[in-house]
């Protein structure tokens, strides 16, 4: 089955991983800008990073038939440095017209501080000004519930935000309902220990239905599994869910959401076959 990974950090993965993803059925992925594992010293470091996301990774992915899309921002962890964050936000417009850019992300909160909230709000301003889609990181572990509610407060208070163009990521059992009920898209991250397992993600699909719900691996430099989505596909099949439902969650939903961005020039691998046979 073809699938799309809507959240994976390929700059942290080897070329072998691209090959494995392709063999598993991954035909496209989207890579939000994130924390490199250390705090960067200047905005110029981010300029180079954005070049990597918009120039280098699409070529690396294309070698394996995978279409690469990306999101730009300064992540929540480094957003604690307000001065640096404003310098980075100022250079983002230079990259918004690159052909694989889908929007602003992954912005959000990490420890739910005042500085993080300030920079989150300034990212929202940027997205509104340039009519960009938004991808949002929600905090980890004990900070997730509080941070998710704070993020929803800020989003819902701003009438300029089109909720159908916002993806709130890393939802779990205690946050998914709040996100979906407010009209946003929700992403479940499949991690080996923290966040969701494929089994719990499948439970959430059964409890809330497949509308506006996606799954991702969020594979990065830490403990993570880039092939987590095929694990979810297998779990759904083992439970007896129809292929049409699985395909909606791991493929069609991503296309529906991303298609709202002018940067999503996705070519379905089977498009020509479909046209020829119809």
């Amino acid at each position: 089955m073809y699938y799309i990974d809507p959240h994976i950090h390929m700059v942290s993965r080897t070329t072998d991983d691209y090959e494995t993803l392709a063999k598993m059925g991954c035909v496209a992925l989207s890579e939000p800008a994130f924390w490199a594992g250390f705090d960067r010293g200047s905005a110029e470091s981010f300029r180079d990073y954005f070049r990597q996301l918009t120039e280098v990774e699409p070529k690396r992915a294309a070698q394996y038939g995978i279409q690469h899309f990306t999101w730009l921002c300064i992540n929540a962890k480094e957003a604690e440095n307000v001065t640096l964050s404003r310098e980075v936000i100022a250079l983002i417009p230079d990259f918004l017209d690159c052909p694989n850019v889908l929007g602003i992300g992954e912005i959000g909160l990490n420890k739910n501080t005042k500085n993080e909230a300030t920079i989150f709000a300034e990212h929202l301003e940027l997205a509104v000004k340039y009519e960009q889609q938004i991808l949002i990181h929600t905090p980890h572990l004990e900070d997730k519930y509080q941070g998710t509610r704070m993020i929803l407060d800020m989003l819902c208070d701003d009438s300029r935000i089109d909720r159908s163009r916002v993806l709130v990521d890393h939802v779990e059992e205690h946050t998914v309902r709040h996100v979906l009920e407010e009209g946003f898209w929700a992403g479940m991250t499949l991690y080996p220990v923290t966040k969701c397992t494929p089994q719990r993600a499948c439970d959430i699909i059964e409890m809330y239905g497949p509308e506006r719900l996606m799954a991702n691996s969020a594979g990065d430099w830490g403990p993570s599994k880039p092939t987590a989505i095929p694990d979810l596909i297998l779990e759904m099949r083992r439970r007896g869910h129809p292929e049409s439902l699985i395909r909606k969650v791991v493929y069609e939903n991503a296309i529906e959401f991303f298609s709202q961005s002018q940067g999503f020039n996705f070519k379905a691998p089977d498009a020509n076959e479909t046209a020829a046979s119809s």
Partner: peptide, 10 residues
């Protein structure tokens, strides 16, 4: 999940 979470205050 809620048991292991920090409180949200509106």
């Amino acid at each position: 999940q809620l048991l292991f979470s920090r409180q949200y205050e509106d």
